[in-house]
Nucleic acid binder design. Structure first.
Lengths: 244, 244
DNA sequence: CTGCGACTGTGAAGCAGGTCACATTGCTCT
DNA sequence: AGAGCAATGTGACCTGCTTCACAGTCGCAG
């Protein structure tokens, strides 16, 4: 991967601009508006494991990931935790609390060392009002999020382990818009288990079965989908047994 | 309850107006704008069990419930089904497909005989653009939905039967803004079981335990929450045992 | 007032997935 | 180069929930 890290690390305005311009939400803004937005944007870095915010915090800002990935999750008193989403470079998060001003719905943790841009509600909301098209963009974003979350809820309620796991793999490959051949999903088995709400051990055993059939290949910290078709069947099938 | 059914049944414009004016999304509109909206609104009735739309349909309209309740659910190939939400009088649904123009994410079924107002995307979107405040209202609505759905997902992944059931009961009492004393939730045990993703039998057994402790009273087609406190404890506690 | 369908109540038996307890393997940081 | 940690692999046992198979019970439609 090309290293524009140096530019980013120095916090040059041009790099902020580049990041914002690439994002679907902001790409259609007029150049002057983008410039203004850049002036509002604060640059921040977090080490792996650091908390960007926690569930229940008063939420007043929107985040854009510049590099690294951020984990959106919640955890229960007894230490179990559920991952709702992994946010990668170019994506935004924290928009719900930004928009409605209420408490954060999840924890956000740096899943790797990462850099983010932060936009504050106080400055951002007036800016949004001055850009009517932006509200529509956010409506679309919220719709997408709602579809993603409903989908997850549906899978978790209706499907058993093989179905849920297959669905999660499909969703992850689609999200990264990977080609049919050699779709590498860069997540650990622990992470996947927390996304589908089952134990790492169970996930591992199922993945091994599929690996033996050459549907997937297991790598360190990644899963390569070799044959998506049977997985798609399982994902559709509700709670059946796996493909035998 | 007072019967303005006669007015409704005749489809008088004044009744449409009354319904729309009461809804949080539309209540702040200017009188002229409301009148215009009424002209767009189509009145429709459905018998218990009838499908208003199905998952995957191209979605082009927004619904407002005038009377009765509508069930938002999905079902799997093998007949199991999951209820995402029960929409009662005064609430709206179908907004996601209206706003982003994509396929419906769930089935909508008349859970009782019901009357609805239908607003079409073709007329509604231009109307919305003429009313900038309306976009903000929808953003708030979408945020609320997202919080509700994330909450459900969190419960289903992190909690066991008692915790999930308690959470569901709390959510239902809160939704209907019922007073602490004598909160009657008008749902069947079958419905609750489909909301939390467990079997009716299991739900029944747990409810009986709580009824014996006077935390709830079970009626035909309804559950009365007598003592919310222990349920709230359970709902918070992640997956513990029930209150012993 | 009676019969039928929707809702509720309950026990017995099975199993999917969780829990626990390890061994192994590979990256990364001195 | 090897210590240390994060991630993976695997078996034995356990349990919470499902499945199945009923038996009430309510309320309404005719």
């Amino acid at each position: 991967m090309p290293q524009d890290k140096t530019r980013e690390a120095r916090g040059l305005p041009s790099s902020k601009l580049a990041v914002l311009r690439k994002h679907p939400i902001f790409c259609d803004l007029e150049p002057e508006a983008l410039d203004q937005l850049c002036r509002y944007a604060r640059h921040a870095t977090f080490k792996r494991g650091a908390a960007l915010f926690s569930k229940g915090d008063p939420g007043t800002s929107l985040f854009t990931v510049v590099s690294g990935t951020v984990k959106m999750s919640v955890s229960s008193a007894d230490g179990r935790s559920a991952i709702f989403n992994l946010i990668g470079a170019g994506e935004i998060f924290g928009e719900i609390a930004l928009l409605d001003g209420l408490a954060r719905t999840t924890d956000a943790t740096a899943n790797t060392n990462c850099e983010v841009l932060v936009l504050d509600r106080r400055e951002f909301l007036p800016f949004m009002r001055s850009q009517p098209a932006l509200a529509m963009k956010f409506i679309e974003l919220l719709c997408t999020r709602l579809r993603w979350t409903s989908d997850q809820l549906e899978q978790v309620i209706l499907q058993n382990l093989p179905g849920r796991l297959a669905s999660a793999l499909i969703r992850l490959t689609e999200k990264h818009k990977l080609e049919p051949a050699g779709r590498t999903v860069a997540v650990t088995q622990q992470e996947i288990s927390e996304m589908v709400g089952m134990t790492r051990e169970s996930i591992n055993k199922q993945l091994r079965v599929w690996a033996a059939r050459n549907w997937v290949r297991l790598e360190h910290g990644a899963i390569v989908v070799l044959n998506a078709q049977p997985l798609e069947m399982l994902a559709e099938a509700g709670s059946g047994n796996d493909g035998d």
